[in-house]
Amino acid sequence: MSLSRAKIRKRQRMYAIAAILLAVGGAAALLLTAFEDSVVFFFSPTEIAEKSPIDPDQRLRVGGLVVEGSVTKLDDGQTIAFVVTDMAETVPVSYRGILPDLFREGQGVVAEGHMSSEGTFVASEVLAKHDENYMPPEVAESLKKSGYWEEIEAKNAEQMRN
């Protein structure tokens, strides 16, 4: 080996930095996996079903697609009821308040609230979660006509589940 002392030191520094980066990356990965339940923003209906019965005092968020035709106004004229699905399990939600503009059937929502003892999720806040597709209205129309739209919706539901 004919490496000069300066070159050896540079090499050592490079290895040290690589080792530190690996260690920090590994630590971050372990931490984030361990605290996965607090890192996720909401639970899917499948996860809610796995966790039930859920303590009514526990605040949590549930997210999924609003089932087509499930949105109804209750008799008091203020409470809105709808069903959230991930195409595997469903959770009925009731909510009193203003809905975001993007709230509509077949679209993603995230509701924050608690599970009542009757198994209905009582939401205190409802947020809209839109998907990653951006397109002009004409393109959306033609996709609906060609039947490709269902594929997109199925993909969205799958994303809610993972």
Partner: peptide
């Protein structure tokens, strides 16, 4: 991709090409 988020998944740099028109 790793966690449930309110933010939608990536639209440009993704495996199956951009989902922006």
């Amino acid at each position: 991709d790793w966690w449930n988020t309110l933010h939608q998944p990536a639209s440009i740099v993704r495996m199956d090409g951009p989902t922006v028109d």
